[in-house]
């Protein structure tokens, strides 16, 4: 079974965002970069599927910067092969999907996080599914694959949906779907011998033009009403009469 897992590179969620000199992009030169947190669940699901049904997990990353350390970490957690598609220029979901579809064959199962924590778009899975001809089951918080079919949960506003289908398929995953593993020393050593390939490719032109990047207005916080339970009656008065929040 050919199992594919797509990993995005994002700034750590503790990163403060500044506007770059061009006025329309973030300045991220001081950021710590990590694998997109939701993609950790995708990797775990891909490895679990291989452990259950056999086959091979390929992790793929599309992006301009050397990502080999993180791809090695994914190999240590159970992936078998890694591919970085190294690009220059801006990447939209359509071009990430097109590059993956062009380089990764015909997978039986594809896993991604539900969105990346930088752009917050959540469309790479949909574009990739379309290009690979695979049905998409998205934003899943539980997933069971058995005998070629799957049953999944999707949490929506005020309820939980049951989603069903069969392989081959593409899945995008939400928190809760599994508990990502940590790699041990032995796995980390073994990962050094696993194949990691880097290919260069040109992305498609962007489809959105960035006009401006703005930071939200800072809140005027910091008003301490008081200390302990004695401050409660004044807080209730302020919420009712001043904020009109009750």
């Amino acid at each position: 079974m050919h199992i594919l897992c797509c990993l995005a590179r994002v700034p750590d969620t503790t990163t403060r965002i500044h506007v770059a000199a061009d006025g329309r992009s973030p300045d991220l030169k001081d950021a710590q970069w990590i694998i997109n947190p939701w993609d950790d669940y995708a990797l775990e699901a891909a490895v679990q599927l291989k452990e259950a049904l056999g086959g091979e997990v390929t992790v793929v990353h599309v992006g301009p910067v050397d990502f080999q350390k993180d791809l090695r970490a994914a190999l240590a957690k159970g992936a078998d092969k890694a591919l970085q598609i190294q690009t220059t220029g801006a990447l939209g979901p359509h071009s990430i999907a097109a590059l993956i579809a062009a380089h990764c064959g015909k997978p039986d199962a594809v896993f991604l996080g539900k969105q990346s924590v930088d752009g917050d778009v959540g469309a790479t899975g949909a574009f990739l599914g379309k290009l690979l001809g695979l049905p998409v089951a998205g934003r899943l918080s539980a997933l069971t694959i058995k005998d070629g079919t799957f049953t999944a949960r999707r949490e929506i506003e005020g309820g939980v949906e049951t989603v069903e289908g069969s392989l081959p398929a593409l899945f995008t995953l939400d928190k809760g779907v599994n508990e990502p593993r940590r790699a041990g020393l032995k796995e980390i050593m073994a990962a050094k011998k696993k194949p990691l390939e880097v290919v260069k490719a040109e992305p498609l032109p962007p489809r959105l033009e960035a006009l401006k990047l703005e930071l939200p207005r800072a809140r005027q916080g910091g008003r301490i009403v008081g200390t302990g339970a004695g401050a409660v009656s004044e807080l209730v008065r302020l919420l009712r009469d001043e904020a009109k929040a009750l």
Binding site: T15, R24, D118, D120, E214
Partner: peptide, 20 residues
């Protein structure tokens, strides 16, 4: 159309327009 899109969960807002 021009759109305001929060990115980084709202740490910044990107103003964008579609090219097609």
């Amino acid at each position: 159309l021009e759109a305001d899109r929060p990115i980084f969960a709202g740490k910044a807002v990107l103003v964008v327009r579609p090219v097609a």
